[in-house]
Nucleic acid binder design. Structure first.
Lengths: 339, 339
DNA sequence: TTGTACGCGTTATCAG
DNA sequence: CTGATAACGCGTACAA
């Protein structure tokens, strides 16, 4: 690999001059400038970013850490698409590294990006606790922004939506329509998101004076098959419910499938809490509603805030996003489904 | 950020010694070793990978370039999952950067990774031509492996499957079952994969002496909605067909949806050519078959070969993978569907 | 306008 | 076993 020094020799100038035409900083005569360009072409020179970043102490690069358990579904897709596009506009490079499947590995991934001297890193955590993240942020100079968690000590470093409220609103909609026996399929309860959505469900019921029936709550792990299993379990146990809320799109789809198999006509309302519009558009089913989580807005806010920190240094306050309930068709009360 | 020099001072040794305990190379007394560890902990030292990689001329890092138009569906998921897991076993870091949406940008992404001195890079191209890739590979020292393309000049640098053959086999299956009027939904024809699958369809027909009816070929762009539109078009034009092959899973799903809407009982066989098992498991529909493309095997072969090049230097020959037809249920001939 | 010389943080060579 | 010291490739004050 040709270095800047070889280019300098070929062009008959000093490395400083080459460096100047490369960076555009400083004056250099037209004549030498052309010599340099020729030499660059002749040698096939490429700048060594390691050396450059080491010298400049900056890399125009931003790291992103995502657990590979999230490499699934349209949520990840949307996240990546928008991140990439926004970074492109900013003229910076986005580097994705796998957060694997444990807190330790998520931490290592962040550390790697930091050691590589990325200007900043964004993490969509799955296993790290908020306290651990608060610590990590406190220990480093580079800004580390966190999506989908609320941190206690670093308000301006986290971007999140009110998961509990979004979940509660979906349930409240159903209650307003006259439903009282509302089943709920949880997400993984080792994830804060899963817990918050469950909490929203319970809060909505209690607020309306409806007793929480633990028998109507079935544990899931975000996968479609969990949705099917949940409905099968409810049916096997002979539970009564006229509506069902699943903690994300995938499980809702599974639930719908199972409902159909059990020949349960779907006035048994189904509210889907999840990300994005349901990814199975061609199979959209009547009576399917959804809470659209603001992925797009959050990633945009995250990147904008990060850039602001890098450029300006001035920090903005936190901001909370909220999910939006998408009603696909009238969710009228319908007949009680006695299974 | 504490440097190795500060650690040395705190520990009362030279930087060379610190470097030794860090790398594990060279002898160092137990006493000093402990001093160093203490100093590291005290200063919160973290190695600067830019400096390290610059000095070592190697980073245990491999870059991966994928166009963001592929950030969708289970194919990408599987690709990322496996890549990450395999790299993890190898003790190397995987860096994903966006290939965006043009040949120029794909080239830039590769260049970036190269400039960052990744040990090697893997690209899953979408817009770059094979000739361009041959050039790129020829111009660089670091190994650049290509998935899903067959290169003319660098056999050992590409891993691919025989798309045309896989496609042809699916069609041949249908022909063997007695089908003669087989519709085909193409992928984007600006992609080699799309063209090869179409070629396979035509080849299979011709081999059996069945004339290719251009009216049964409908253009799609890999998306579910294209599958729906294609079926709608076929119906609107009053085409006769007893079987349908879609160029990937997503379009097959859309096609199935449309077939259902048109009340076409599905003895109109549907063969799906696509990647992976169909991702919509809960909605699997009778008479749906699929060609499982060997993503897993290909990415594994790619990484193994790359590692071999980096470690050994000895190069292996190319190897072609083939898709495997997954028959979900008997694809018996069924009644002719006269639309 | 251009060149010299030093620094960036590590590794690696070579005396001691 | 340990410590100077020279790379690694590039940016940049400083001097000319």
């Amino acid at each position: 690999m040709a270095t800047i020094l070889e280019v300098a020799k070929v062009a008959g100038v000093s490395k400083a001059t080459v460096s100047r035409v490369l960076s555009g900083n400083g004056y250099v005569s037209q004549e030498k400038r052309e010599k340099v360009f020729e030499a660059i072409a002749a040698t096939g020179f490429r700048p060594n970013l390691l050396a450059r970043n080491l010298a400049t102490k900056s890399s125009q690069t931003i790291g992103l850490v995502i657990t590979n358990t999230l490499y699934t579904g349209s949520y990840f897709t949307e996240l990546m698409q928008h991140s990439a596009r926004l970074m492109e506009q900013q003229g910076r490079q986005l580097l994705l590294v796998d957060g694997k499947h444990s807190a330790e590995e998520e931490r290592a991934a962040i550390q790697f990006l930091l050691d590589l001297r990325c200007d900043g890193v964004i993490i969509y955590p799955r296993f790290l606790t908020t306290d651990e993240m608060d610590n990590i942020i406190a220990q480093h100079n580079q800004p580390i922004l966190v999506i989908n968690r609320r941190l206690r000590q670093h308000d301006s470093y986290c971007i999140y939506s009110d998961q509990q409220r979004s979940s509660a609103e979906a349930v409240e909609q159903l209650i307003a329509l006259g439903h009282r026996d509302i089943a709920f399929i949880t997400g993984s309860l080792d994830s804060p998101t899963g817990r918050e959505r469950l909490a929203g469900y319970k809060a909505a019921l209690q607020k309306q004076g409806i007793a929480v029936d633990e028998g109507l709550i079935v544990a899931g792990k975000w996968q479609a098959q969990n949705g099917m299993a949940a409905v099968n379990a409810l049916v096997a146990q002979g539970r009564n419910f006229t509506a069902l809320v699943a903690s994300n799109d995938d499980m809702a789809v599974g639930a719908l499938k199972a409902l159909a198999q059990h020949q349960i006509a779907v006035p048994a309302q189904v509210a889907v809490i999840g990300f994005d519009d349901i990814p199975l558009a061609p199979f959209t089913i009547p009576a399917l509603s959804s809470v659209k989580m603001p992925v797009t807005e959050m990633i945009q806010e995250t990147i904008e805030r990060l850039i602001a920190m890098l450029d300006g240094g001035e920090m903005r306050n936190d901001k909370m996003f909220s999910g939006e309930l998408i009603v696909r068709e009238s969710m009228g009360p319908g007949p009680h489904n006695n299974l």
